[in-house]
Amino acid sequence: MLEKISMVQQLSDSDEALRTFIFKNPAQIFQLSAREIAAKIPCSSATVTRFVKKCGFLSFRDFQIYIRNEVENMTGTSMTKRIFLEQIFVDQVFEADINEQITRVGELFQAADWICCIGMGSSGIMAEYAARKLNMIGFKALSSNEPYAPFLKREAKENGNVVLLFSSSGETREMVELAQLLKSYDKTIISVTNSGDNLLANLSSINLCYYTEKQRLPYQFDLSSQVPVVALIEYLVAYCYHLQAAEN
């Protein structure tokens, strides 16, 4: 259990104390903030953040998700079975800087000629929904559930266009290849993924990530919840609408 943490070498005394606390209290880790964990050691919250990076995690939230999954595997239960519906957005579904990220995306949308929303499967439905909502408030947006759609060859290269990619796993081969193509055009890539630790997120200029339990069925059917994605779209569209109203 917790191999990614136990394998880290050359730790300071504070790091060792932090690791010992994690090993003894894994079920508490995904319920506490970095500051609250630091207070229990004691150490600084910066020490906690640096330790998380040393373990190979992109963010503190990715670290918490890893711990939670390890606890669930050990106990054979799913923690999310104990979460009530009204708590779903209270339990740190999004990163702490999500509002700043939304602001950056909104500014890019304001300056864009076209917004290309792309995804596959359930994520393709989210891309279509995003394009529809953006069109309703006056943006020029189009959607596709086919990452190799012909229009991309032209639109993706044009400087005035923004590309918004949806992928629950962030590892879908077609979506990753598309992101690599867009990166070769020096495009600003905005992605929406379930966690910030995946190939698509790493290729993106801006990653809007959320955290829900991943549920994969045989033959790669994805039953993971899209509720946080809908919430992100709704919030982003509302922000853009009010941004437009303020300018007018």
Rank of each mutant, 00 (worst) to 15 (best):
A96D: 12
T77V: 07
V90N: 12
L108Y: 13
R68W: 01
D113L: 06
A96S: 09
M79I: 02
K53H: 15
P42Y: 05
R82W: 05
D91Q: 11
N135H: 07
Y129I: 11
R50N: 05
K53P: 13
E100H: 06
W114F: 14
E72T: 00
R132N: 14
G119R: 01
V71P: 03
F139C: 09
G121M: 06
L85E: 15
A127E: 10
Q101Y: 10
A130T: 10
M136N: 15
A111G: 15
W114T: 10
F84E: 13
Q87F: 05
E100Y: 02
K81C: 03
Q87W: 00
L58I: 09
S123L: 08
V48M: 00
E128L: 12
F51E: 04
T103V: 12
I125D: 08
K81P: 02
I115H: 04
E100K: 06
S45R: 02
G138C: 11
E86T: 12
T47N: 02
M79A: 11
M126W: 10
I115T: 08
W114H: 11
V71M: 08
I125Y: 14
E72N: 07
S45L: 01
F139H: 12
C117F: 09
R68G: 01
T103N: 11
A127D: 06
R132P: 04
Y129F: 14
N73A: 07
A112P: 10
R104W: 07
M136L: 15
D62R: 03
D97H: 00
T103I: 12
V48Q: 04
Y129C: 13
F84R: 11
M136W: 14
F51W: 05
A141V: 07
M126G: 08
L108W: 13
K53R: 15
A127R: 09
R68S: 08
G121D: 03
V71T: 09
I98P: 00
P42A: 01
R68V: 00
I83M: 08
I137V: 15
E107C: 11
Q101M: 12
K140I: 09
M74P: 00
S44V: 00
R104V: 13
G138T: 04
N135I: 05
T77P: 03
F63G: 00
Q110R: 15
R61D: 02
V105L: 10
W114K: 10
T75Y: 06
D113N: 11
K54P: 10
S59K: 00
V93R: 06
E72K: 00
M74V: 02
A111S: 15
I98L: 03
T80L: 11
I102N: 01
G56D: 11
Q92Y: 09
Q64A: 04
I65F: 04
A112N: 06
G56L: 12
A96R: 03
A131K: 11
L58M: 07
W114Y: 13
T49N: 05
C117E: 03
C116I: 11
N135W: 01
A127T: 08
G121F: 04
E95C: 06
R50Q: 05
G119L: 02
F94A: 00
I41C: 04
T80E: 14
Q101V: 09
A131I: 12
Q92N: 14
T77I: 07
M74R: 08
I83P: 00
I125H: 14
D91K: 10
Q92T: 11
I125G: 09
I41V: 10
V90R: 12
M126C: 14
